[in-house]
């Protein structure tokens, strides 16, 4: 028989699979741009403390609201702090908090969604009702309540954000599980008498993992926007820590004559959001998931 080269494939290691996905993502222009932006921001977040030209909290009244110059590339703000320094440092907190927040969202959202999809029936109904009820509360109000009660420390922000952004993931995980649950290989595993744990771990998770990861990546960009809104309102990180939301909020009143103080953090924030979005999209395409049909509200 002729050996069929197209259909012959060796089993791949996890590392091979991941690198293959990344290569596929980067082979599309939008994926390449998204990945580049995201990697740029991550690298910047790591190295910015070492390359920042000035001290981010050094106030200098004599240098208030200077326009961009060779010395101060992005100008200075109303307290005379270097905007360039503060901008490259301003993504660090946002990126870290939302990254861990997304992980938490993935974890609880994914597990609860799989659980609901698996048990079905009454319990599923009740849990989804509760999730829906939470969905209907404007999240920002709830966040404000939590933050004002518990403070704005990282230990509060990460789980709180993770909780609110996990709701969407519950829906996706539940829907994906529902699709898989009806398949005969699950029926077959049940008829053989595998334990529920084994069914979830071996049969369900490998089949819903991709959809959940993509949703998580998408939620990350939303969370970033949400977190920056909190900072903007003064409920995120506390000054003088450099943060884009905070910087925008501070400089927005001066926009008409010191646009530079607000433009730089806006560019930083929006480029990161776009970068994550494009990456998540390319990720979905590389895994063969059609976001347009799976997109939750």
């Amino acid at each position: 028989m002729t050996v069929n080269s197209i259909y012959k494939e060796e089993k791949k290691s996890a590392f091979q699979k991941v690198s293959e996905v990344i290569i596929t993502m980067a082979s599309r222009p939008s994926g390449f741009i998204g990945l580049s932006i995201l990697i740029f921001h991550i690298i910047l977040a790591f190295i910015s403390p070492y390359i920042a030209p000035y001290d981010f909290k050094a106030i200098n009244p004599t240098l208030m609201l200077q326009a961009p110059s060779a010395e101060y590339w992005f100008g200075t703000d109303d307290l005379g702090r270097d905007v360039f320094t503060r901008t490259i440092l301003g993504g660090r907190t946002a990126l870290t908090i939302t990254f861990f927040g997304s992980l938490i969202a993935l974890l609880w959202g994914g597990l609860l969604g799989i659980f609901c999809g698996l048990v079905g029936g009454k319990i599923d109904d009740i849990v989804m009702r509760i999730v829906d009820a939470f969905l209907s509360i404007p999240w920002i109000l709830a966040m404000l309540l939590i933050v004002s009660l518990l403070g704005t420390s990282t230990e509060v922000l990460i789980p709180a954000l993770g909780f609110f952004y996990g709701k969407g993931i519950v829906r996706v995980a539940r829907a994906a599980t529902h699709d898989v649950i009806a398949k005969d290989f699950i029926v077959s595993a049940r008829a053989r008498g595998h334990s529920n744990f084994s069914i979830i771990w071996n049969e369900i998770i490998p089949n819903v993992r991709d959809a959940i990861l993509v949703e998580g990546a998408m939620r990350w960009s939303w969370m970033l926007l949400g977190f920056s809104s909190l900072s903007f309102l003064g409920f995120g990180v506390s000054p003088p820590t450099p943060d884009w939301g905070l910087m925008i909020s501070n400089a927005r009143g001066l926009m008409s004559f010191a646009y530079w103080a607000v433009i730089a953090p806006i560019v930083g924030l929006s480029s990161l959001i776009i970068g994550i979005n494009l990456t998540a999209d390319a990720f979905a395409k590389a895994l063969g998931i059609d976001r347009s049909t799976k997109a939750p509200v």
Binding site: D184, F185, V187, S188, A191, G193, N202, P206
Partner: peptide, 19 residues
């Protein structure tokens, strides 16, 4: 459970695509 086994109609659905 062992003494009774099932074979299904659609082999696409009865084999886990990730195994």
């Amino acid at each position: 459970l062992r003494i009774i086994q099932l074979i299904f109609q659609n082999p696409d659905e009865s084999l886990n695509p990730n195994h």
